[in-house]
């Protein structure tokens, strides 16, 4: 159906949408985050969900305490090496389709603790991250921006056809191996199927 006809119909009170659009429209406006915070970024996340910034405007006010009911994991704060297996395990327990926002300098790269002995250098070493937000901590506006970016991403996902979203493909992984506590570091220190160091050209 071309846009002209659709426009004409909508003037007459007949709304025509594709099933895919309806499906994505519903999904993107009811993204339920998993309620967990790891450090000071979590305070900003709480602020974003409260009255002043009101994440409810974007349909994401329902923070779920169980990963089984959540669509979105906001990794808000420093991921220590002792905590990383639990974060990966929580991600594995979430049902598809699921999304991850890495919030703040620590969650995306280790941040100010990058050279420490007990901080993971970014949660994207173990699980796929959809949106990275820099900042230390990012303001609630930045989290809202990440949210809208994620909504745009959900909106663009295909339901039918060969290029449809990965979670329809049974051969694509939806769970990722949980790292083990080693003698000197986590084993393995990164998941090469998820993360490869970017090539820095100098």
């Amino acid at each position: 159906m071309d846009d002209g006809l659709r426009n004409e119909l909508s003037k007459q009170g007949v709304v025509v949408v594709k099933l895919e659009e309806l499906y994505n429209w519903g999904r993107k406006n009811s993204v339920w985050p998993l309620s967990f915070g790891l450090a000071c970024c979590a305070i900003e996340m709480m602020a974003a969900s409260m009255a002043r910034y009101d994440l409810a405007r974007f349909g994401a006010e329902v923070f779920r305490p169980s990963p089984r009911q959540a669509d979105l994991m906001i990794v808000a704060g420093t991921v220590t090496k002792k905590m990383a297996p639990q974060v990966v395990r929580l991600y594995n327990q979430m049902p598809e389709p699921k999304y991850v926002i890495a919030m703040g300098a620590c969650a995306i790269s280790g941040g100010p603790f990058k050279q420490g002995y007990n901080v993971l250098k970014g949660i994207d070493r173990y699980i796929p991250v959809d949106v990275h937000i820099p900042g230390c901590p990012p303001r609630p506006e930045a989290l809202i921006h990440a949210f809208m970016t994620l909504q745009r991403k959900i909106d663009a996902q295909k339901v039918f056809g060969p290029d449809r979203a990965h979670y329809f493909d049974a051969s694509k992984p939806s769970e990722f191996p949980v790292p083990l506590f080693g003698e000197h570091d986590l084993v393995p220190p990164k998941n090469p199927n998820v993360w490869e160091p970017a090539v820095v050209v100098r």
Binding site: K82, Y117, N118, F181, E183, H184
Partner: peptide, 11 residues
């Protein structure tokens, strides 16, 4: 208390 049991080093 901070590192896991089985960790060998003293950081």
């Amino acid at each position: 208390i901070l590192m896991w049991d089985g960790f060998k080093d003293y950081p």
